[in-house]
Simulated assay, not measured.
Amino acid sequence: MIINGYLARLGTAEYEASPDGERLVRLYADGPAPGFERIAPDRYRRLVLVGDLDWFGYARTVATWRELPVLVLAEDNEDMTVEYLGGIGPLAVAAGFTRVEPGVYQGVVPRSEVTDQRQVRTS
């Protein structure tokens, strides 16, 4: 599963999250849960203090493609959309990535060539 965004753990449950100022965090759930309010079909939200969370941070799904470090952005049955993380523009272009903005190179690669996929978390 590809995760690129804020997450929070409250008790034993982990939620998609987003900061709301310096002291608050919005937690999101796909179904009803205690303390959550319905904000759209299959979307529920709860506002909590950062200090009440067991963990809050950012998660990214990273991997390796042909020995190059990449961020996994999306996937389908056969391919993955990835962003090169190596910081060497000429190497990214030589590998077939497209420059989407200064210093950012992305491409669609065969899923079978992507290895070492893992989630990296920062607090």
Rank of each mutant, 00 (worst) to 15 (best):
A59C: 10
A59N: 10
R60E: 10
V62T: 11
V62L: 08
A63P: 01
A63S: 06
A63N: 02
A63T: 04
T64S: 15
T64L: 07
W65D: 06
W65I: 02
R66V: 00
R66Y: 05
R66L: 00
P69S: 13
P69L: 04
L71G: 09
L71R: 07
V72E: 01
L73Y: 01
L73E: 06
L73I: 05
A74N: 08
E75R: 07
E75G: 12
N77M: 15
E78N: 13
E78F: 14
E78M: 15
E78A: 15
E78V: 14
D79P: 15
D79N: 14
M80E: 02
T81N: 11
T81C: 15
V82L: 05
V82C: 05
E83M: 13
Y84C: 03
Y84L: 06
L85V: 05
G86H: 05
G87T: 06
G87A: 09
G87K: 11
G87I: 02
I88L: 12
G89I: 08
A92Y: 13
V93W: 15
V93H: 14
A94L: 12
A94M: 11
A95I: 08
A95S: 07
A95M: 09
G96S: 03
F97K: 01
R99A: 12
E101N: 14
P102I: 07
P102F: 01
V104P: 11
Y105T: 02
Y105W: 09
Y105S: 06
Q106S: 10
G107F: 15
V108P: 03
V108G: 08
V109Y: 01
V109A: 01
S112F: 14
E113V: 05
E113A: 04
E113G: 03
E113S: 08
V114K: 06
V114I: 05
V114W: 00
T115N: 01
T115S: 05
T115K: 04
